[in-house]
Simulated assay, not measured.
Amino acid sequence: MTKGRTVTEFDDAAFGLAVNQVSKPVKTKYGYHIIKVAAKKEAQEANYNDSKAKIKATLLDQKVESEYTTWLEAKKKNYKIENTLEEV
């Protein structure tokens, strides 16, 4: 996680802890949280070449998700589908 991506109370508690340290209960608008820091990494500047494969996979997933329903409806028109399951 990166700083600034969660609510202020969570950020303040999480980023104020050392590695392997556990927080006291933290109250946010989402409830109570207990945070343990397992590890910390230095922030790095985004690099296209390092991120290219992940970007491509994300774009493909988005395309599949947006086209799936249309494709499925088109396929259903080619087959007679009968639901034989009993309604509960």
Results as ranks from 00 to 15, higher is better:
K76P: 01
K56S: 09
T28N: 00
E45A: 14
V37Y: 04
T6S: 11
I34A: 02
S51A: 11
A18P: 00
K3Y: 15
Y68T: 02
L17G: 04
K3N: 11
E82Q: 12
F15G: 01
S66H: 06
D50G: 12
K27Q: 12
L85H: 07
I35C: 02
E42C: 10
S23M: 01
K56Q: 15
K52R: 04
Q62V: 03
Q62M: 11
K40P: 15
D11I: 01
Y30F: 07
K80V: 14
G4K: 05
L17I: 04
T8A: 14
K80D: 12
A14K: 05
A46E: 10
K29V: 08
I34H: 03
E67N: 07
A13F: 02
A13E: 02
A43D: 10
V26Y: 02
D11H: 02
V22S: 03
L17D: 02
K52T: 08
E65M: 11
T2N: 14
N20M: 15
V88G: 14
L72V: 13
Y48H: 03
K29S: 11
Q21S: 04
T58N: 08
R5D: 14
R5W: 15
F10L: 07
E82R: 10
A18E: 13
V37Q: 05
L60D: 14
E86A: 13
V37E: 12
L59F: 09
Y48P: 00
K63M: 04
K56W: 09
K3S: 07
I34E: 10
N49D: 14
G4S: 05
S51K: 07
V64P: 01
V64Q: 13
A53Y: 01
V88H: 14
G4H: 03
S23E: 06
N49C: 09
K77F: 04
S23K: 03
I34L: 06
K29M: 03
E86W: 12
K52Q: 06
L85I: 06
V37L: 01
A14T: 04
T8F: 13
